[in-house]
């Protein structure tokens, strides 16, 4: 297992056969049988909804229809899980997992000699070196966070395309969601106030009547 990984690292072209790898995975995971099943179940699931559509009632949701549409949704959500059953053998999945991790990391690391390019896309020599470094560190069992920290210690924060969560980067990360939440809150507040103001404005005559009523009450 470990030796296999080492081979992958030191082979002259680490990219060799990646496409075939991907290709074989489609079929290694979900068997043709499970794929056929997907299609059949899907067809069954959609058909009742289709009938309710044919009946052309715009809001057909009596109890039975509602239950049916809920079951339709449940089946569909189950279907979504099918693609995740893809990993047939553990060793294969492990290697594939490492590969995916490396690829994801390449996208996060800036090629220090290029103009705003990540090392996945760059064909500069330094980018190839950095890719090799990352693959080696993954093979040594380092975590993504450790690898990122190592890179930033060697090359500076400049090398990371995903800025770290730090005090200095607080605004960068938090402002967009805060503005969104704040905006929604302000909008709700304004529309409430406006609605309230509209509802309770009384004319002078009404005010006078109100005073009368209150006086008589006493």
């Amino acid at each position: 297992m470990n030796r296999k990984r080492q081979d992958r690292v030191t082979s002259p072209s680490p990219f060799m056969g990646r496409g075939d790898h991907l290709r074989s995975r489609w079929w290694a995971g979900p068997t043709p049988v499970s794929q056929c099943l997907t299609v059949v179940i899907a067809a069954l699931a959609v058909s009742p909804a289709h009938r309710s559509l044919r009946s052309r009632s715009p809001l057909p949701m009596n109890g039975e229809g509602e239950r049916r549409s809920m079951s339709l949704l449940a089946v569909l959500f189950l279907l979504l899980l099918l693609p995740f059953t893809a990993h047939a053998d553990a060793a294969h999945a492990d290697a594939a997992h490492d590969e995916a991790r490396a690829k994801a990391l390449y996208r996060e690391v800036r090629c220090v000699a290029c103009q705003s390019q990540d090392i996945a896309d760059s064909d500069a020599a330094i980018a190839a070196d950095m890719r090799r470094e990352i693959r080696e560190e993954i093979a040594q069992g380092r975590s993504d966070a450790e690898i990122r920290a190592g890179l930033s210690a060697r090359y500076g924060d400049y090398v990371l395309f995903r800025p770290r969560f730090s005090l200095g980067n607080l605004l960068l990360w938090s402002l967009p969601p805060l503005i969104l939440v704040g905006g929604i809150a302000v909008f709700v507040a304004i529309s409430r106030r406006r609605g309230a103001a509209r509802d309770y404005v009384l004319s002078e005559a009404e005010e006078a009547r109100l005073r009368d009523i209150l006086k008589n009450d006493r």
Binding site: V46, L76, L80, L82, H97
Partner: peptide
Amino acid sequence: GLAFGVACLSAAIGSLFYGGA
């Protein structure tokens, strides 16, 4: 509802064909 169902189905089929690790 139907549009969402069909979208889910299309996406599931798409993930079967192009899904990664």
